[in-house]
Each structure stands twice: as C-alpha cells, then as structure tokens.
Design a protein around this nucleic acid. Sequence first.
DNA 1: ATAGTTTTAGAGACTACTCTCTAAAACCAA
DNA 2: TTGGTTTTAGAGAGTAGTCTCTAAAACTAT
Lengths: 200, 200
Amino acid sequence: MARPSKFSTDEILDVACGLLLDDGPAALTVSAVARNLGAPSGSIYHRFNSRDLLIAMMWLRAVEHFHQHIEPIFDTTETYSDVVRISCGVVTWAREFPLHAQVLLLHSASALLHDGWPDEVIERNQAQLQRLQVMQNKLCKRVGAKTAAQKRRLGFAIMDIPYAAVRLPLSRGEAPSKDSEQLVADAVTGVLAALTKENT
Amino acid sequence: MARPSKFSTDEILDVACGLLLDDGPAALTVSAVARNLGAPSGSIYHRFNSRDLLIAMMWLRAVEHFHQHIEPIFDTTETYSDVVRISCGVVTWAREFPLHAQVLLLHSASALLHDGWPDEVIERNQAQLQRLQVMQNKLCKRVGAKTAAQKRRLGFAIMDIPYAAVRLPLSRGEAPSKDSEQLVADAVTGVLAALTKENT
DNA sequence: ATAGTTTTAGAGACTACTCTCTAAAACCAA
DNA sequence: TTGGTTTTAGAGAGTAGTCTCTAAAACTAT
C-alpha cells in the first residue's frame, strides 16, 4: 500500500494558475510552484515529468472545463438567432470560473510552453481541438453556414466577440461588467444580421 | 569623435520583435537578441541597462506607432456612426504593420516585463497612456457619450472588437482576412445601435 | 602623436531554473 | 518483521540567462 499524497494534482495546478495570474508567465516555474505549495521540487517532478507538462496539464484542465461547460449550449443551438446563447455562455463561463478563464483567455499555450506540447499530452490536446472542431462543424450544419465567409462570421460571433468583452476585466482580476452579456449580444446581432438576412 | 555604431537601436528592437513572434516570450532574452544580431551582449547592455528596458522600448515603439497612426482618425470622428472608422482603422493598422501589431496586440507588457516598467521609461509610458485617455475623452465629448455604460460601449467598439478580429491571424503570422474590416463594422454597428438610438 | 569620446567585444561572476538521483517516509499485506 | 509500492524530501549537477567589468577599437580634434 503506497504512501498517501500530501499534495493533490489540483492543488499543484491551482498554485500554478495563481502564479501565472499574479506574477505573469516568467514567474511560472516549477521552483516557484514548489516554493508556494511548500512541497519539494522532487515531488513536483515525480508527478509532472517536466515544467512544460505541468503547464500543459494546467492548460488542458481549463480547456476541458470550458468545453464541458459550453458544449451543451452548442448542441442545443439550432438557428442563427440562437447563436448569441453560445456567445453569452462564454462570458458567463468566464464570470463564474475566472481562474480557468484567465488561463485560457489571457495566454496562449504556445507562449507558455517552452518546448511545445509534451508527448504525454499530445493526444489529449488533439482530442480537445477535435472536440471543438466537431462542435463548430455540427453547429454550422444546423444553422446552415456553408461558405467560408459564413463560417468565419459565425466563429467571430461565438469566440472572438465574447473574448473581446472579457479580456480586460479578466486581466485586471475583475469580473466582467454586468452589461457584458448585453454588449456581446448586440455585437453578435450586428455580425449575424447579414447571415440571418441570407437565410430569409 | 565617437566610434560609430555597428547596430542601430531599431535593428536591435526588430530582432527582439522577431524573437518574440517566432519563439515566444521565453525566447526573448538579451542573450538571444545578441546572438541573432551578431552583437556582443556587452553592446546590448551598453544601450539598454536591462532586459526589461529593452522590452519596454520595443513595446513603446509599437504603442507610439499605433497612436501616431490612429490619432488622426480619432480626432476627425464626430458622430457615433463615424466611430466605425476608428475600429476599422485599428484592423487596417494591424494589417499594414504586423510587426508592431503582433507585439502590441498579442502580448501584454506586464507579461513580458519581469520586474515591471523600468524607471527610465515610466514617464514615456505614462505619456502614452495619457495620450490614449485624452483621445478617448475628447471622442466621448464629441459624440456625446456621457454615462459609464455609454463609454464602456464605445471602448468596446473602438478597441476590443477590432482587437478580437485580428488576434488569431496575427498569432499565426497571417494578415487579417479581407473581410475583417466588414466584420468589425457590423459588430460595431450592432454595439452602437443602442447609442445612436439614444441620440435621436 | 596624444587626448577625448563613444561603442564594440567578450570574459566571467552570480543567480535561478531544470531536472536527476538517492534515500527515507508512509502506508498496507503477509 | 519483511516486502512492496508510492510519495516525499532535498542535495546537487548542469545550463542558460543577467549583468558587470576591463580593454580595445574606431572615430575626430589638437
């Protein structure tokens, strides 16, 4: 029977998140995580083969959380006029889960990883990229987006605009303002106006 | 009479930009800049007292370039329906000056600087923050934005939306798609619809 | 030629990080 | 008690970055 852990994986990843958000990417080192957690660096390396693996896991945790949250909204969206539900869902997710949102929306994985995606998580990462792609493809089919321009417009509405609304508050460690969902809805309405016209 | 420089300040900053964009923030070191430029590190440190000063100067160069470009558009915008000119001007600037745009729009200064803004450039940075604030305040006055909500909406239209439209192509080293200005215009139209109604 | 000034050049001190390694601790089972 | 397994613990090898320092180069003026 093995010695029990003193530190859970989530605790380690939470400390890493905190360091990233409070002190920036350069502060995100295994030494700093260990120091802040009160764990020896050998313990961290025992769990995560490399610094990049720790970062990648932190990132994937946020991505998976986001996808889990947003997927049901995607899957129940049938028309262009419903798309705004997804857009606002992104904002609401960022509001409710700022830690994950700060990781996912304020930094790119490639900027955080020093040597790219570690082998251990390549498939897991691919799976999430695929998962989002499938969500988007199915949505395009359901709402009737066929051309590249229509798809681009849809992607702008779903991901880029909500991102625009939350990035500054997130970077200040604040919640998005109360009217953020309405702002996003208005922008999305403007962007999709052309497409809903095409569909009528 | 002093020995002439072999390397100009702009050359040094250009190499730094290239490193940031090609290899990410962690690759942005004085050692790497020196190596890529073929200059001794002593020369770089002779010019820039610290790594953070080099980064700060690279950042400010991009900010000042952007402000120089966007200020005339700000200053000639009088009505809500003209605001879209600013929004599209941001996209066009990013399209024409990708190097500066990549620095300014894909990374936050705080994420790049290890120890915050160096004393040498605090005032210069403050001046640019002030400059933007003045532009925005004057615009609010001219178009008639009075409440915090109106101002928020205006800021969303001017900065956040264009930014969202260019960040992914920029991060891939690509130009924004040809329809980006139209996408932004539609989103901004949606966002400002409420304000133009209030004004009539 | 010497003096003055600025810039290049590169060695090296120092630091912090990454990661490996060894050993011990902590648990249960036999 | 011994054995097995997993985890903690922490020393230390190796590396790369930051930055200081010394010296020389490169120019013009006197």
